[in-house]
């Protein structure tokens, strides 16, 4: 398809494929959450020297895990596989301990003092969030993986005319949830976020399902958030209620890497507005601190008008896209006016 020549360069070709890469990362994180409890079971079997005593089902787990983890486990799975443990709330990735900044904030609030070794594990995530904003929400969060699938279902139901367009509230509601959560953690003396934060719930419930007595209370809570997103408002929990999203939005407020619209290449097609699950309206330059750099809008843009910029603030609304009909009409009007004068 030929496009009229334009003053702005097309977005770097690879940015269009970031959305696919993102789905790969999300799937990988989710797969790890399922894999790690099985690895843990495998380590238990190894530690127990119990292969001959295992049931056929357990032997399947043993054999599969032995095959999958062979490159990492080497000769001593009971010890070497300890290098990968945990979930997105807090975990060890090949010996590097990483924690969710919200876990650290919650714990500091609960015990009213700082445990430094724990704070240090959140430094890399905090640094990345300062640079990339809410990227955790779009690229890593295991709940996002399910919420986006949920949103696809929602879109299908909407096309069938079964759902209305959804409610809109103040996006700052989630900062209230964050503040109340910090306050409650201090008053109650316990990390309340761990009970209401979807990614940790997803990780833990998968673990309970595989190694413990089956899924528990968290599953109920998570299903309610799914229904909330489906029936009440699009991606409602992430946008209005998630305390982690609130924290990341605050940390990433002055982020360096931002998606921006190049007005000279935009044709006002509104595809980006439709694809944005956070309802941010890229076509009106409305990214703000809510954008989680999911790059779905870049992938969907037919004129490569959306691209990454390194700058501390968003551009204010730039007006109609220069390839769109409205802009051309305006140009024509002013040209005619010139002529008449």
């Amino acid at each position: 398809m030929e496009h009229p020549p334009s003053s702005a360069p097309a977005a770097f070709f690879f940015w269009r494929h970031l959305n696919l890469l993102r789905w790969l990362v999300l799937s990988l994180v989710f797969a790890m959450l399922i894999l790690l409890p099985y690895v843990s079971l495998y380590q238990n079997y190894v530690a127990g020297h119990a292969y001959d005593l295992l049931t056929p089902h357990e032997r399947q787990i043993y054999d599969a895990m032995e095959w999958i983890t062979a490159p990492i486990a080497k000769s001593d799975p009971a010890k070497n596989l300890n290098a990968i443990k945990g979930n997105t709330w807090s975990g060890t990735l090949f010996g590097l301990a990483l924690s969710d900044p919200l876990a650290v904030v919650g714990q500091i609030a609960a015990q009213m003092k700082i445990y430094w070794p724990f704070l240090l594990t959140a430094l890399i995530p905090i640094g990345l969030t300062v640079l990339f904003g809410r990227f955790y929400c779009g690229w890593i969060c295991p709940a996002t993986f399910l919420y986006e699938i949920n949103d696809t279902v929602r879109n299908a139901l909407r096309r069938l005319g079964l759902l209305s367009s959804g409610k809109r509230w103040d996006l700052r509601l989630k900062y209230l949830v964050l503040a109340v959560g910090v306050g409650l953690s201090t008053v109650l003396g316990t990390v309340v976020f761990s009970a209401i934060y979807p990614p940790v719930i997803v990780g833990r419930e998968i673990q309970y399902w595989i190694t413990d007595n089956g899924m528990g209370v968290g599953l109920t809570f998570f299903l309610i958030t799914l229904l909330f997103d489906l029936l009440v408002t699009r991606r409602g929990f992430c946008r209005y209620l998630c305390p982690g999203g609130a924290l990341y939005s605050l940390l990433g407020r002055y982020r360096l890497f931002r998606i921006q619209r190049q007005v000279a290449r935009c044709n006002d097609c509104t595809l980006c507005d439709k694809v944005c699950q956070f309802a941010l309206q890229p076509m009106r330059d409305g990214f703000g601190q809510e954008c989680n750099n999911c790059t779905a809008c870049i992938a969907v843009c037919p004129t490569q008008a959306l691209t990454f910029h390194v700058q501390l603030a968003d551009q204010p609304y730039q007006g109609h896209g220069h390839l769109g009909a409205a802009y051309k009409r305006l140009q024509l009007h002013s040209a005619v006016k010139e002529e008449l004068r």
Partner: peptide
Amino acid sequence: EGQFLTQCIRCGQCGQICPNQAIRYFGL
């Protein structure tokens, strides 16, 4: 117990690493 509850972030790693599957988790 009171101190433990302020410190525990409920990440579930102790249960994952326990080689004897001794560590379980409470529901309500």
